[in-house]
């Protein structure tokens, strides 16, 4: 590490009340078929543009999670959400319909974990209920970051598939029942190891994930063995392997418990090469899969690391390398 400073926060009252997910058709054909609260049959979602469909997924997820947690819209103090589109239009436009404060945030695919950290910090400061949401849409992201949908191009084997879906979580400062809690969090710093290939985002993000994980273990004096699983955001298969190598070099062996949200979202036959990417991956997997396992006691304590590549098409065309960030939360059942 170049330098080291304590950056880990501790939370005492960040209860995870409920999670709700809206997933696209391809995601619901994947490894977690049937885990999602609402699966789209058609990713246009009865709208006339893909952007409007993404917006509607946000509206649906936020309304859904509020209802599922047996709350009313008036109970929510603020919604913290973000997506991948320019000016985070999906999250902010969707918030027009919601009678709560809105904080729009962007950390690429680390947005969901960033929103959990911010939400938890606000609960510590007196707010009661916060909704954290994040999502992405394959067709809108493809247009913004890559090519038009119908352009015939050969995809590189290191590419990922932007997941379609939105996940939303209600955090509350009080809970009658025993629910999973966010107990600690590490805010990541931006790390850039000079990767230029925008297809290979896993390799660009792995060093930042290493940086955040090492900071967390040093700050808290914990070891990877204390956690049932460590879920990273969307490093993909290659990025996960790189992360394990980097962690080994720092003296932490995480290879037996590290999983990747994006990498595990699809079956190999779905031809996504490195697996899923996008702000939806972490949000979908956490709310649809991990939360249930925590509640059932299958996991006692887990780490969730949201990984984000912070480039834009403009910076890539101008020949800049890809900076990346990783935020981490510790969730205790």
């Amino acid at each position: 590490m170049d330098f080291y400073k304590k950056r880990t926060l501790t939370f005492t009252n960040s209860n995870i009340l409920e999670g709700y997910t809206v997933a696209g058709p391809k995601e619901n054909d994947g490894r977690y078929k049937g885990f999602f609260d609402f699966a789209l049959e058609d990713d246009m979602f009865a709208q006339n543009t893909f952007e409007r469909a993404e917006r509607k997924m946000f509206e649906h997820a936020i309304e859904g999670v509020i209802a599922k947690a047996n709350l009313k819209e008036n109970d929510i103090d603020t919604v913290i959400s973000g997506d991948l589109l320019n000016q985070i239009v999906s999250a902010s436009f969707a918030s027009r319909k919601i009678h709560a404060g809105f904080l729009g945030i962007y950390n690429a695919c680390a947005t969901f974990v960033e929103s959990l950290i911010l939400g938890s910090a606000m609960l510590n400061n007196g707010l009661e209920n916060v909704v954290c949401a994040s999502g992405s849409h394959f067709s809108t992201a493809e247009r913004q970051y890559r090519y038009p949908l119908e352009l015939g191009v050969l995809r590189s084997p290191v590419t990922q598939w932007t997941a379609t879906g939105v996940g939303a979580t209600v955090l509350s400062n009080k809970s009658d029942a025993k629910v999973p809690k966010i107990t600690r969090a590490t805010i990541g710093r931006v790390v850039d190891y000079g990767i230029m290939d925008t297809n290979n985002m896993g390799a660009a993000m792995a060093p930042s994930t290493m940086s955040t994980l090492v900071t967390f273990f040093k700050d808290t004096g914990t070891t990877p063995e204390e956690y049932d699983v460590i879920y990273t955001g969307d490093l993909g298969k290659l990025g996960s392997e790189i992360l394990r190598d980097l962690m080994k070099q720092e003296g932490y062996d995480i290879s037996d418990r590290q999983h990747d949200c994006g990498g595990s979202l699809y079956w190999d036959e779905q031809q996504t090469y490195q697996g899923g990417s996008g702000a939806a991956c972490t949000a979908l997997l956490f709310n649809a899969v991990l939360l249930g396992r925590l509640r059932r006691g299958e996991y006692k304590k887990i780490l969730l690391a949201g990984t984000g590549a912070l480039m834009s098409p403009t910076t890539s065309f101008q020949g800049d390398s890809i900076p990346a960030i990783t935020h981490l939360v510790e969730v205790t059942a």
């Binding site: 949908l149 119908e150 352009l151 015939g152 191009v153 050969l154 995809r155």
Partner: peptide
């Protein structure tokens, strides 16, 4: 056409 392009490069 894009399906052809996926493998024909």
């Amino acid at each position: 056409y894009d399906c052809i392009g996926r493998f024909a490069g």
